[in-house]
Amino acid sequence: MEPILLIIVVCVVLGGVLASLGVHLLPVGGAPAAMGTATGVATGTVMLMLGAAMCGLFTASSVAAFSDNILLVSLSGAIGAWLMMGVTMLVANVVYVFGAGVVPVAGRVEVDPITRQLQTPYKTPQCDGHGVPNVCYISGMAGALLGGFGGAFMYFALLNYAHFEATAAGVIAMGIFVANAIIAAYNIGGTIEGFHDPKFKRLPKALITCFVISLFCGVFVVMAATLGGLI
């Protein structure tokens, strides 16, 4: 087996596992967050991660057009996702604070692990927190960074090592990314506040599952590459 084929599999596996880890770090509140009943961003896990990763993929694909360095392309993708999450969470907080009049607080901890600020006195009773407090914000930024890096890493491997056409490489990278993100979403049960959430301890199971799935996907990519590539 040629070394480059093994590298393709390693890149796909690493990208998938990072996607899973990134999802676990995102503060996802789901439907309850849209009503200010739970902490986190008011959308679904996969939607949010995909939105961030797509921004990252867009930037990574622009950079891949003029740079051959896998690290630079992947970091560009990571920063693209990080900016998307940063702006989205910041404006979400603006809407929570000024549009709904609530203080962003976490529901799963009594004290913010990063800023050491009390959370419970500012929380609405019978709610599991609301908004995106600082710990969730930082966790979300880290998650987007890792997810964006993983997606861009896979894209670069598909583009330059498997020699797929750019759009095809983008679609396939996104498809493998979505598969891993969905497994992570199932693992956390739909919502999570970030690394401080007790649900974060479920991470190892998702990482192993995503490793297996990404390995399957990597093998299929290698088969497509050896059979002549994709347009």
Binding site: A34, G36, M47, L48, G51, V91, A92, G99, G170
Partner: peptide, 20 residues
């Protein structure tokens, strides 16, 4: 790509004003 992104953003920010 941008369709997914606008959907994710709209769901994350504007829906708070509607829902809450």
């Amino acid at each position: 790509i941008w369709g997914i992104t606008v959907g994710a953003i709209g769901s994350s920010t504007g829906d708070i004003h509607y829902g809450t």
